[in-house]
Design a protein around this nucleic acid. Structure first.
Lengths: 249, 249
DNA sequence: CCAAAAGTGAGTACAGTGTACGCGAATTTA
DNA sequence: TAAATTCGCGTACACTGTACTCACTTTTGG
């Protein structure tokens, strides 16, 4: 499930993602008749987030969320149609906790702030890496963050599509770095913090000359934070684009 | 599990990832005594990959893999210590199927080939997006691919760490785009193929001015493939670095 | 005030998961 | 031929997500 139903119901089915959007955006008027709800969606989502922060995404089960709230497991389904939708809500919830790009002085500064704030978010909630991956619904908080970043680009003469691509580029870069950092549980023999996913005594210099060479190098210098280094590279590329558009106008 | 045990056994425990490395690299000599194995690791991994290609990562269960091979479920555990390790093997297996950067004429051309080949791989095996995420062990095929890309950078005067960062940057970019493409099950009202994760009638122009503005724009132009656009941006950034290093020598 | 209706909370049940344990069968060595 | 060792796998268990059902509250219409 989770990815299959978006793929299977590819042509107009109820497609769980649609229900996610209703939950994320729609505030359907509360019914006038009947018993009052004893729980709120917000509390459920908050509990799930806490659980995920503590024990990873796999630590979040419907039973555990319900137990933590002191209610029956099936009561959760009064507020959330399924677990996948709960994950969407969790994602949007943590998106709303970062101020991100508040007082940026220009597009470059703004993108830098955005990138660093995103990385910090991934560090605080490592499960975001997996949650972002599996589903693709955008909530109001995520939309607000995206809107803020786009506003930062308003000074430039980029087109709409170009701005979107630029933001996607930076966001993708940060996610990549965050994943590498998450994979590094101080990789192998405490060497490079940059890439290094667990290489022990393996790796023959004869068959992997370039790779082993890099390994030796990296031990020697360790000059700069790989995140900032790559970020500068990305922003340089964007700067080249911005420049070209400014001249071409 | 899956992510927790790498985090929990943070200090020198047996840490399932270590066993993955043994499976990926070590070809421990076959025992001379005892019954002959009726199955091979390769066949198991191949079956799991086929299953994942057909039904997504969630379609891969130990029982289903065993059924497809016509053996008992628990027999799998004679070859693979746990499902997580099987995923590592699946990942490395598909890494070995792409020629990737064969006859590149320079670092830029090489990185372009690498990026396009990677994107194609993600398209062929969408489950890679989730598999890459969860675990972090590098097998011989993945090492070979990485080595090939690094070799492409040998013409430049970049340091080892810089080369690693460059490769990580490109790889991260491609993964980001691949994820967006996967999220687009022809997102919402068939508009922009670039970002667009299901925005229906929501999204008030007053509260999200920049975002809604971009939406309108993107419908008008649709000039270029977002992947190639972003890729050029990334490579431009790298080019700037390469240039600076070449001059500084 | 009193049904009727609507909506809530949760217990039970089921199909499915990963895998620990242990036992019989097959194979090689002494 | 007997001992040693390995393989194949049946059984069992804890756990998952969630469909169904029923009793209980609360509000509304008469």
């Amino acid at each position: 499930m989770t990815e299959d139903d978006t793929a299977a119901a590819s042509f107009g089915g109820p497609a769980t993602a649609a229900r996610s959007m209703e939950l994320l955006w729609g505030t359907k008027p509360p019914p006038s008749r009947g018993r009052k709800p004893g729980m709120t969606l917000e509390r459920i989502v908050a509990a799930a987030v806490e659980l995920a922060d503590a024990g990873g995404l796999d630590g979040v089960s419907m039973r555990r969320v319900a137990d933590r709230l002191g209610i029956g497991t099936m009561s959760l389904y009064r507020y959330v149609p399924a677990k996948a939708e709960l994950q969407d809500l969790m994602l949007d919830a943590v998106m709303g906790e970062a101020p991100a790009v508040s007082g940026a002085t220009g597009w470059r500064d703004g993108l830098e702030r955005y990138a660093r704030a995103s990385l910090e978010g991934y560090r605080r909630h490592p499960w975001l890496l997996r949650a972002v991956l599996t589903r693709g619904a955008m909530g109001p908080n995520q939309a607000a963050a995206l809107d803020a970043v786009l506003r930062v680009l308003e000074g430039s003469d980029l087109s709409g599509g170009e701005r979107m691509a630029v933001v996607g580029l930076v966001a993708g870069y940060v996610r990549g770095v965050a994943q590498q950092l998450a994979g590094d549980t101080r990789a192998a023999r405490g060497s490079g913090g940059g890439f290094a996913p667990l290489i022990g005594g393996h790796l023959d210099p004869a068959t992997y000359p370039a790779l082993t060479g890099v390994w030796r190098d990296e031990d020697l210098e360790r000059a700069e934070d790989p995140f900032e280094f790559g970020l500068r590279r990305v922003l340089d590329g964007i700067a080249a684009l911005v420049e070209s558009r400014r001249v071409a106008t």
